[in-house]
């Protein structure tokens, strides 16, 4: 398993480089213009000068090379400087956004807290609700609990956040006045009261997002449990006299986790990626909002950087999932 992991890690480098190239070419090919959001009152000659100032006059391969150098060579230096107070990166040009002309990574760092609070928390909540629902639904297949669970999760999944978001706002903010719905990113948690405020402003976006996660994971959990509950080894375990609890929660669960692990590993990069629609509805302004804003403004350096970071996380978490398969089911061998 160790050699497998190491081999995969090494293989990940060319993979990621290739992915970054494909992303770059895709963005080059995509129609769009960083000047699209500049008002029409600005004449075309001025817009052309602004494009040149952004470096758009240079050929594509030069810009790609510059991005590679900035991202893989200069940004790590900035990180080192930040932690050790050194000055490797001084005077070197970082990956600069076309929208706000500031380093992309600074904005990413600025937006991580709210993304983690909201999207990360929704994922945790979603998983915590989904697993028990999935397990119990499968164990008591076609019981009232199972039917109700199926019904609610499927409706939850078929109704998109662009509807549930405004719905909870109208109910809980406008009608009942319980929660604020414009997320305050300047809020800092310092004491109990501010913590309570943080909870109140988080609860609606977290619930809206968790609904989707819950539906998805609980369905896979249930299906996988059902597959395993009828296996011979379950009968054997029961025949041995193991308690029902141990049979279900140890033997069956462990063997049913493979698809669930896959789904969770697929979802984790998305935490970092944020949730575009929900973030917008609640003005959370996390990384999802940053990405969609950059795409709409055709801010290529930002899009390229963020997309590449997702790519990295995707490759990384998929590797973790593969390693976990081997742990969950030792028969799986990769070499």
């Amino acid at each position: 398993m160790l050699t497998f992991t190491i081999r995969r890690l090494i293989l990940a480098i060319p993979t990621l480089l290739f992915i970054s190239l494909v992303i770059f070419l895709l963005l080059e090919l995509a129609p769009g213009d960083p000047m699209a959001q500049v008002p029409l009152t600005v004449p075309p000659e001025v817009k052309e000068k602004m494009r040149l100032a952004l470096g758009l006059g240079e050929p594509g391969y030069v810009r790609f090379w510059k991005w590679l150098v900035q991202f893989f060579w200069i940004e790590p230096q900035v990180l080192i400087d930040h932690y050790f107070g050194t000055a490797f990166s001084e005077g070197k040009l970082r990956v600069i956004s076309w929208q706000h002309r500031a380093p992309v990574m600074d904005v990413v760092v600025q937006r991580l807290p709210q993304t983690m609070w909201v999207v990360g928390m929704s994922y945790v909540v979603g998983i915590l609700i989904a697993l028990p629902i999935g397990i119990y639904s499968a164990y008591r297949q076609y019981s009232v609990f199972d039917q109700a669970g199926t019904f609610i999760t499927m409706i939850g999944y078929s109704i998109p956040p662009f509807f549930t978001g405004p719905l909870v706002i109208v109910i809980f903010s406008v009608q009942l006045g319980w929660f604020p719905f414009i997320y305050d990113t300047t809020h800092k948690v310092t004491d109990w009261d501010s913590f309570i405020y943080q909870l109140r402003q988080m609860i609606m976006p977290v619930m809206v997002l968790a609904l989707q996660t819950t539906a998805q994971i609980s369905r896979y959990m249930r299906a996988s449990m059902l597959d395993n509950l009828n296996q011979d080894y379950v009968r054997t375990a029961r025949a041995k006299g193991l308690s029902e609890r141990v049979v279900v929660l140890v033997h069956v669960l462990r063997n049913s986790m493979i698809p669930v692990v896959t789904v969770i590993a697929l979802g984790l990069p998305a935490i970092f990626g944020g949730a575009i629609i929900t973030e917008q509805i609640f003005s959370v302004n996390g990384i999802g909002a940053q990405l969609i804003g950059a795409i709409q403004a055709n801010d290529l350096p930002t899009v390229q950087t963020l997309t590449f970071m997702f790519a990295f996380l995707i490759v990384f978490f998929n590797l973790i999932a593969d390693v976990l398969y081997g742990i969950l089911d030792p028969r799986i061998r990769y070499d």
Binding site: F181, I182, S283, N285
Partner: peptide, 22 residues
């Protein structure tokens, strides 16, 4: 003064006209 950006016109309108957050 806090100058908040983002969201959509509906949310902005609600925040001033209906909930008074802004």
């Amino acid at each position: 003064l806090t100058f908040k950006g983002g969201g959509d016109a509906t949310a902005a309108g609600r925040a001033v006209l209906e909930t008074g957050e802004f």
